[in-house]
Every structure is written in structure tokens, then in C-alpha cells.
Design a protein around this nucleic acid. Structure first.
Lengths: 337, 337
DNA sequence: ACCCGCTGCCGAATCGATTTGGCAGCGGAG
DNA sequence: CTCCGCTGCCAAATCGATTCGGCAGCGGGT
């Protein structure tokens, strides 16, 4: 029923050359007369020939596919119910990575959980770990199996990585808050184990110190809105509150802050500015007051991760690091500059 | 540097048999003495042998990879800015599909946009289209290239598909709303071109007719919260409003409804019940009042789609249809039964 | 006139698995 | 005793590409 695929043999026969010559002509290698080369290329196009990736990779000793895994997700995959992590951000990293892999002739798939790692080692050429945990077991396993590896977000290991320039992004955000009045911003976070939170924290402390402002850290017991809301509401309602702006490390924390302000009747941005250090669709609409946020360009992160990974596949083992700048999506929750 | 991979040759040599026998022993085919088979299996395990998927697929005439594409996304991929579609739902379909593909020895990757379809046809065995548009060009192209195809969400074509049982889900939702008082529910939707909206609409009309209630359809100009809010707010504020519950086809519409109710000072669920016919993380927290919603089990949809696709790969061309039941996540926005 | 070297092309090996066809050896039936 | 058939195993072909080594033929240098 299905017509047999056109192989390089068909092209070679049709062009009147050997398979070897056809291959060399199509790949621009070897010594082939220009006229012959053109002839092969033309007949290939005429027959609608496309290389069989499988055969090509068999010869090259590769699989032609990459695997991406999101560490926090994979670790939680057995847990039922609604996900806790920022699906939108990860999805966009994945989109970027996927598209870029495609462009470079690879396929990229998502590793659902860590359990399957054994199987995957024989099925992929490289691994991208998004938001690796410290001493991530998967990274160790990949290193042991000799699989190329790149992370999105920094890791203590000596691997290549891509990350946002959180330090400069945080400084930009703070400058924005302070542009129209002498803002006294507090930092609202839920944990400090991730590298990006540590970057943001130290940039915040530096800025406060330079501006001669007392740093105020508010800590949520968890990342979810319902976990964060009581904490921020208490802080906002406190009679001796000494901040008039809140910088949050997660969109959910900004969400909780905006709701609390609304509940308490605080005017945003008049009495309280709110700014999230990561953007998401729900900060834009779905709130009383759309929230200014730092755009982390997750699609770009995914693309770069794939480039780093593929480059490292055949090249030297030289590690590379890329910092992606952030940009500020200014909305109603802060005073425009 | 990297130790050479263990191949079946190594296993055969170590076990003292031929490559053919080793292959047959490992795959449970052919005629092999039980003792020999066990010996081969043991030495394979001892050497840490894993099959090379590439070589296996070369022989089988396959690529061993599947491609999934989300039609609304791919069509919009060139447009910059925040996505309009329900990322979370699609992500969970993808997760399920990805995991299931893995389990069955395939890799699944996401096709970023329709432009790349030409390339992918030579790189995959099958295609999953999520929420296909009517007369989707990609489906036609795949059919033309002889690529197996399955959709998530119905399509007029004669393909296999998986879909939710929206009809029965809608009826269940309506029964829930009417359980504690004689609810007069309105249906809030934004378009009727999708098959699931049509299912929900007709189930709603049937239910109204059976209950002797006048059906009320409210239509939003678009799927976004900011597009929906003016419409629903006007409807809620109308002096001759004849409904006391709202059923929405999208989470964003439920979101807009809840906000409008809050703005107008309407008590939810006391004066107005709200129910979304699709669930998302933001209906659970991030709102004044968590909203009851229909869980579509997107992970399950992804898994089934992969099963249908893989089964159709070597089997007959017989098409299959699967209806996945929904379940109701009851929250504060409706009166508990 | 001889030989070197370069060009253009091709045969055959290779990658790692599956699968086909067939070869021994053994036991039971006639 | 002969022959058939079954069991257990293996050699070789196959999948579709790349790549290495080599073979002619031709032109120029000596």
C-alpha cells in the first residue's frame, strides 16, 4: 500500500553513478566533478529523496535525539493532583529547545521521570536538565554513562549551562521601583536553595546596601498562593510596616501579594508596588491589577541549551556558559518610569 | 575516552553463541534451548547490554519516534508575546503521551510549527494532533505521506481519536449544580467551532429541555479574561437576570465570571454558582473563591493517544475511538451535594 | 618515453541489530 | 536399518547511509 521510500540507491541509479558518489555529491564531501554533483542533486530533488535519519545516525554512532528533563517535575511525577511548579515557564523552555533541536536535525523529547533514566541512556545523545537540584542524581548518572549534558540554571558541577542574568535583572527591577519615588522594597521568597533565588537575594542585598536602605526579607512556607497569602497579608497589615514595594521570586508570590493588598484595601501601585521576578500569563490578566514582571525569555533559554548541547557533542569537552539578559514587562502594579 | 558500548556481538562472544542465537534468545523468538536462552540473558545483564534502538529500527524500517503537535499553538507560533492557549492542559497531554511513548520504546517529540512538517515526515513513524482544526492541513499532509495519525479531540476525518466524554461530563456538572436547589444555569462560551464546545452545548440544551428550563447562552468575544469580563459582568448586573449559576467552557471564562461576581458584590456560591468545564491550576488557588471544575484527565488522553498510534503502526488500518470519562473537582464555588 | 601525481569515480566495509534459510544431530516410526 | 522430522544453532543477507582504499585515465615534468 505505502509506496517504498526513495533511497540513495534509487538516486544513484537514476543519476547513473554509484551510491558512494551520490552520497559524496549530496554531502559536499569527497572529490566529485561539479557537473556530476549537480546532476545528482537535481535527480535527488526530482525524485523527492530525503535521507533516512536512522541509517545516517547508525553510521555516525548517534541516535539523533536529545532528551530534556525538568528536575522538579520529574522528582514529583509520582505525586498525583495538580502540579505545583510553573508549568508555563517549563513549557516555553521546552518549546524553544524543541524547535531548535528540530532545526539542527535532532529530535528532542521529554523524559517523564527519573526512573526511566536507565532506558534513555541508550536512546539519546545528550541530556538537558532544567532547574537541576543540587547534586542531581540524574546528572551523576549521565556523567557516569558518558552522556553529554547541559543544564538550564546553574549547578555546582563543571558542566555547560545557560541561565538568566538574574543579578542584573533584579537590579533593573529595583531601579524601576525606585524611579518615581524613593521606594523601600521588600523581597518575598519561598526558599533559597535554587541558584536563581540566591542571585536575586544577593543582588537585592547589594542594592539595599548601596542605597542605604534596610533590607527586608519575607519568607513564605511554600510556593503556592494559599501558602504565601497568610504570610504576606500579615506583613502588609503590620502597623510598623517599613516597606512600600514587594519584589517576589515567583509569580505565585506576586499573585498572593496582589490579593492581600486588594483584601486589605491597599491601593496598587499608589500605596504598594508589586513586581514579580518571573513572568507568566496569569500576571497579565486574571488579576485585579496586572503585575509588572521580569521576562526571562524561556524560549531563548531552551534554544541556547540545545545549541550548547549539540556543539559539545562532536567538539571538545570545553564547557561554556551563557547568560541571557532579562527584560521588564511593565504593567499597572508599578509606577511607570 | 568513552568506553565502547556493549553490542550484541560482545554478548554473543561472551556467552559462546552466535549473534543470531543471542538475538533470538533476547527477543524470545526462534528456537533456542531454555538453558542457552537463560545463559544469554544472564550474560547480557552482567555486561550491562542494552539494545541499540537505531540499529533495531533500521532493520524494522522505522524511526522509533513519534511527533505530537498542538494545532492551535503551531498555527500561532509565529506570533510573539504571551500565549493565548491553555498551556497547562496541553503540557499535561504532552506529559502523558511522552511517558507512554517512552514505556513502549518510542520517543515522542513536539513539532514546534507547521512549517517544519516537511522535514518531520522523514523523521517520525506517526503523528498526534491535539485539538485539530477543521480540515487541518497537517492531517492532510500526513495522510498524503502515508504517516499514521491520531487526534486528541474529534475531527471530521476518518481517523482514530481520543476525546473526553463531554456530553456526560456536562450532564454531571448540571446535575451537581441542581442538586441542592433548583439551579437555573446559563452557559458561557466563546466560540462553537470546537467539537467539545458543540458537545457541551447540545448536552446543555438537552438538559434544559428535560428539566423544563429556558436555556441561556452567553457569548464572549474571545477566550481571554479581559475579553470575557465585560460581557459576563453586564449579564450578571442585568436587572432581569434569569440565571443563578454559570457553566463555562473555558477556565478563563470562569475566572472572568468569578471576578465579575466579586466586583458586583454577588456571593459565590450563595447567590451565584460557578463551574468550569475544564480544570486548571488557577481555578484552585489564585482566586477569591476556588472554582468547581471538570477534570478532563489530560494525562490519560495523552497516554491513550500514544497507544492508539503505536497499535495502528503495524496493525490493521482499523480506526478506533476512545471516550475518556471526566470527573468533577468540587470546590467552593458550588453548593456541595 | 617514462613516471609521478592528481582527478573522478567506484567497490566494499562498516554501523548493530533482525531474520531467513539451512545444516547437523538425534530420536522415533516403519 | 533407513528415513523422516524436529530441535538447536548458526552463517549470511538485510536495512540505508557514510567512508576508506584503490583503480583508471590523463596531463605535465624531466
Amino acid at each position: 500500500m505505502k509506496p517504498r521510500r526513495i533511497t540513495i540507491k534509487d538516486v544513484a541509479a537514476e543519476a547513473g553513478v554509484s551510491v558512494a558518489t551520490a552520497s559524496e555529491a549530496l554531502n559536499g564531501k569527497g572529490r566529485v566533478a561539479p557537473a556530476t554533483r549537480q546532476n545528482v542533486i537535481d535527480t535527488a530533488a526530482r525524485l523527492g529523496y530525503t535521507v533516512n535519519r536512522i541509517a545516517k545516525n547508525l553510521n555516525a554512532g548517534r541516535t539523533g535525539s536529545l532528551v530534556l528533563t525538568v528536575s522538579p517535575m520529574a522528582a514529583q511525577s509520582t505525586k498525583p493532583g495538580q502540579p505545583e511548579w510553573d508549568v508555563e515557564y517549563y513549557f516555553r523552555v521546552l518549546s524553544g529547545a524543541s524547535a531548535q533541536a528540530f532545526q539542527r536535525g535532532f529530535l528532542l523529547s521529554m523524559l517523564p521521570s527519573h526512573e526511566s533514566s536507565r532506558t534513555f541512556f541508550s536512546a539519546a545523545d545528550g541530556l538537558i536538565v532544567v532547574d537541576p537540584s543540587q547534586n542531581d542524581p540524574l546528572l551523576a548518572a549521565a556523567a557516569g554513562a558518558g552522556i553529554a549534558c547541559v543544564t538550564v540554571g546553574r549547578n555546582s558541577d563543571d558542566l555547560s549551562w545557560v541561565d538568566n542574568d538574574f543579578s542584573s535583572g533584579t537590579t533593573t527591577a529595583l531601579a524601576h521601583l525606585a524611579a518615581n519615588r524613593d521606594a523601600k522594597p521588600a523581597l518575598f521568597l519561598s526558599e533559597t536553595s535554587s541558584s536563581y533565588v540566591r542571585d536575586e537575594l544577593s543582588a537585592y542585598l547589594d542594592w539595599c546596601s548601596a542605597a542605604g536602605i534596610e533590607p527586608i526579607i519575607i519568607r513564605s512556607p511554600g510556593p503556592r498562593v494559599d501558602e504565601a497569602e497568610p504570610v504576606i497579608q500579615a506583613a502588609l497589615a503590620s502597623p510598623d510596616r517599613r516597606f512600600d514595594a514587594v519584589l517576589t521570586t515567583l509569580d505565585t508570590l506576586a499573585h498572593a501579594t496582589e490579593r492581600s493588598a486588594h483584601t486589605l484595601g491597599l491601593d496598587v501601585p499608589g500605596e504598594l508596588q508589586v513586581l514579580s521576578l518571573t513572568d507568566s500569563r496569569y500576571l497579565d490578566y486574571g488579576l485585579q491589577r496586572p503585575i509588572t514582571a521580569l521576562d526571562l525569555h524561556p524560549v531563548r533559554l531552551g534554544e541556547i541549551a540545545v545549541d550548547l548541547l549539540i556543539d559539545s557533542l562532536d567538539g571538545t569537552a570545553e564547557r561554556r556558559r551563557e547568560l541571557v539578559p532579562t527584560s521588564l514587562n511593565v504593567r499597572e502594579s508599578t509606577l511607570a518610569g
